[in-house]
C-alpha cells in the first residue's frame, strides 16, 4: 500500500465544516482544539475557494525533525503520529508545521498549555488498538476497524478524500476528466494571486500572462 494522504478538491468544497464537526464528534475533541478546519481563500470575492486543512502527514515531516524529545513516529502507511506520554508540550512542532496542525489544549485558570494534539488520520496512537486508553489520548482508531478517516467519509460533496494516495489520485484524475476542468485549481495563482493582480481580485479575473500555477 502506498502512503495514506488527504486530498481536498477545492472545486467541490462548500465550506460546510462537516469535516470539522465529524472529527470533533468522532474523537470527542475538547473545546478549543481543532484537529481540522476549513480555510477559505479570497473570502467573499467571486471565485473564492475553500479547503479543509489538518495534518497532511508529510513525507518529510518538519514536526518530527524539530521535536526535542523525539515523540513522533511514522507508521508503515505513512501516517505521522506521536506519543503523548513523551510530549512535553513545548510547541516547537507548532512553529515548524506549515499547516498549523499541532493543537494545544489550554487547561487551568492561567491557560497552561497541555500536550500536543493533532489529526491522527483516525489511526489512534501508541496504545493497544481500540482500547479505552487509546481513545482517551488519541481518539478513535478507525483504520484498525477497516474504515477511513471520519472527516473524509462524512464529506457530503466528497470534496475531502482520504486514503491511499494512489487511489485518491486516480479518483481525482477521473473527476477532472469528467468535468473537464479543475485540475489547475491548485497552485500559486489560487493561493496568492497572479502578478499584477489587485488585492482581493478573483484569480479568474486576473491576466494569466506570466502567472505561476
Amino acid at each position: 500500500m502506498a502512503r495514506m494522504k488527504f486530498l481536498c478538491d477545492a472545486e467541490r468544497c462548500i465550506e460546510c465544516n462537516g469535516c470539522v464537526t465529524a472529527c470533533k464528534q468522532e474523537h470527542e475533541i475538547p473545546w478549543g482544539v481543532n484537529r481540522r478546519r476549513v480555510v477559505t481563500v479570497n473570502d467573499g470575492v467571486p471565485g473564492e475557494r475553500s479547503i479543509s486543512v489538518a495534518c497532511m502527514h508529510c513525507s518529510d515531516a518538519p514536526c518530527m525533525a524539530v521535536c526535542p524529545v523525539d515523540c513522533f513516529y511514522k507508521t508503515e502507511e505513512g501516517v505521522v503520529l506521536h506519543d503523548k506520554d513523551l510530549c512535553i508540550g513545548c510547541g516547537y512542532c507548532f512553529y515548524a508545521c506549515p499547516f498549523g496542525a499541532p493543537q494545544f489544549p489550554q487547561t487551568g485558570a492561567f491557560g497552561v498549555r497541555g500536550k500536543m494534539d493533532k489529526c491522527t488520520f483516525c489511526a489512534g496512537g501508541p496504545e493497544a488498538n481500540s482500547s479505552e486508553e487509546e481513545f482517551r489520548k488519541y481518539g478513535r482508531n478507525r483504520l484498525a476497524e477497516g474504515k477511513l478517516p471520519a472527516c473524509a467519509e462524512m464529506c457530503a460533496t466528497k470534496a475531502l478524500l482520504g486514503g491511499d494516495g494512489d487511489v485518491l489520485a486516480d479518483i481525482y484524475r477521473q473527476r477532472v476528466t469528467v468535468r473537464g476542468r479543475g485540475g489547475d485549481v491548485w497552485g500559486w495563482a489560487t493561493a496568492y494571486g497572479q502578478p499584477g493582480q489587485a488585492p482581493g481580485q478573483a484569480p479568474g479575473q486576473a491576466p494569466a500572462k506570466g502567472g505561476k500555477s
Partner: peptide, 13 residues
C-alpha cells in the same frame, strides 16, 4: 529516533 512506545499495526487485532 523515536523514543516513545511501540505502536500496534492497524490490522493486528
Amino acid at each position: 529516533t523515536y523514543q516513545g512506545k511501540p505502536d500496534q499495526k492497524p490490522y493486528a487485532g
